[in-house]
């Protein structure tokens, strides 16, 4: 009956919808951050989405500063920011600060966390830290081909349930899983998929109380501050860059910038 092949009608068929825009970043609708441990293939994912050719190489710390590019998908334009790879957001090397400040102050619409499927446990440390900061994240479980080669199996659905965010298995070097990733970025950005990210639960009662007290003080002062608990925890830990953000009024800007968006 239909003279179109079935693939074309299926909603999973996204090939024609993705338009790589390179560095043409005018009038973007959404901002996507690309975070993750070093050497997990962030730049390869970035190149796949934007059509750019950021240099990729098998050594950690190769992306310096941050690279930006764009793509469009189903009439929406996305700017994508490739952050330097970090193992954590806790200590303060320049790389970690660049990554954290962008996720915290840049308020990306979606944060795609690229993780190495063959070393999931260590990668999860960073994933959990990012989930403390942002609500809208996707785990891009990359290097699935390597995982298969090394006989590592991952229960993707259980992982997604545990983390409370979508998990997309990919092999970016072979472009596998990229259409699914793009579709999910669009779903999370537009609010079609609502994340309920995992938050740390096993704090001691004293710590939980301390966080609660300070967070209340913070929200009294800055109504609408996103992730007040996290800011409170950082302040208790004496994180110097957050203290400075508070003193310089950057934290305030954060509230002001987000309120109109919420309305």
């Amino acid at each position: 009956m239909s003279n179109q092949p079935n693939c074309e009608n299926c909603p999973v068929h996204h090939k024609s919808n993705l338009v790589r825009l390179g560095i043409d970043m005018d009038k973007v609708d959404y901002v996507v951050a690309l975070a993750g441990n070093p050497n997990t293939g962030k730049s390869t994912v970035f190149n796949n989405l934007t059509g750019l050719r950021q240099h990729t190489g098998n050594w950690p710390g190769k992306t310096v500063g941050r690279a930006e590019g764009a793509f469009s998908y189903e009439n929406d334009r996305y700017k994508i920011v490739d952050l330097p790879g970090t193992y954590s957001l806790l200590s303060t090397s320049t790389d970690e600060e660049v990554a954290r400040n962008f996720i915290l102050f840049g308020r990306p619409d979606v944060t795609v966390i690229v993780a190495d499927a063959t070393r999931l446990e260590r990668n999860l440390n960073l994933v959990l830290q990012i989930l403390e900061i942002t609500d809208r994240a996707i785990l891009c479980l990359n290097l699935m081909d390597e995982a298969k080669r090394n006989h590592v199996e991952i229960d993707v659905r259980a992982l997604s349930r545990e983390l409370g965010i979508p998990v997309i298995p990919t092999s970016a070097r072979k472009r596998e899983g990229m259409p699914e990733l793009v579709a999910m970025i669009s779903d999370v950005a537009s609010g079609k998929y609502v994340c309920k990210p995992h938050r740390q639960r096993n704090h001691t009662p004293q710590l939980r109380h301390a966080i609660g007290t300070l967070a209340k003080k913070l929200t009294d002062q800055y109504p609408g501050l996103p992730n007040a608990d996290w800011v409170a925890l950082r302040l208790i830990e004496g994180d110097q860059s957050i203290v400075e953000a508070l003193q310089n009024g950057i934290l305030e800007d954060l509230v002001e910038n987000t309120t109109p968006m919420a309305v």
Partner: peptide
């Protein structure tokens, strides 16, 4: 306190990994 926070984070990560990763 910093160490406690970090180790509880790592414990969470280890627990999730244990639940979802299996090696053959």
């Amino acid at each position: 306190i910093h160490d406690k926070i970090v180790s509880s984070l790592y414990a969470d990560a280890a627990q999730i990994a244990r639940k979802t990763v299996s090696m053959d």
